[in-house]
Amino acid sequence: MKRDEIIVGMVIFLFGAATALLSLRMPIGTFRMAGTGLFPLCLGILLMILSAAFVLKLFLQHKKIFTPKETIVKAPGTIKQIVLFVGTLGLATLFFNKLGYPLIAFLLIVALLRILGMKRWTWNILLSLVTAITSYFLFVQWLKIPLPKGWIGL
C-alpha cells in the first residue's frame, strides 16, 4: 500500500510540474505587475514542493501507514463491471444531443440496471420506461428545461 501511495504522490508532483512548465509559456511579469502566468507558476511550484515533501515523508516512515478501507475489496468481476459502467456513461454522453433526452434516459437506465445485475428483462424495461417517462415529464414538460430533443423529437 505504501508503494501505491508513493506513486500517487509522484503523479501529483508531475501534475504540478506540468502546470509550472505550461505557465512558463505565458507572460510572467513581476509580483508588482503580475502577468497571466505568474499565479499558476507559483501554484505549480508549490504543488511540487508539497508532493515532494509527501513522498519524502513516506520514504522516511517505517511504520505501516493507514490503509483506506475501500481498497480492501477486490473481487473478480468488479473490474469488468466498473469498466462497463463507465463505458456506458461515456456512450450516453456521446449520443446525448443526437438521440435526445427521453431516449438516452431510457437506454442508459436499461444498460446500467443490466450491468449492475438486474436479471429480469421485464422488470428492467418496465423500470427504465417509468423512469424515462417520469423524468421527461418532470424536466421537459413541467420545468421547461431545454434538454435535447434529438432524433425522436420529444
Binding site: L84, L91, F95, K98, L99, L107, A111
Partner: peptide, 20 residues
C-alpha cells in the same frame, strides 16, 4: 449475454443517428 445486449444497443444508437 451482456455482450449481445451492448452490441444491440450500439446498433440502435447508430441506426437512430443516421436518420436525417
Amino acid at each position: 449475454m451482456l455482450k449481445k445486449i451492448m452490441i444491440g444497443l450500439l446498433a440502435t444508437f447508430i441506426l437512430l443517428v443516421s436518420i436525417p
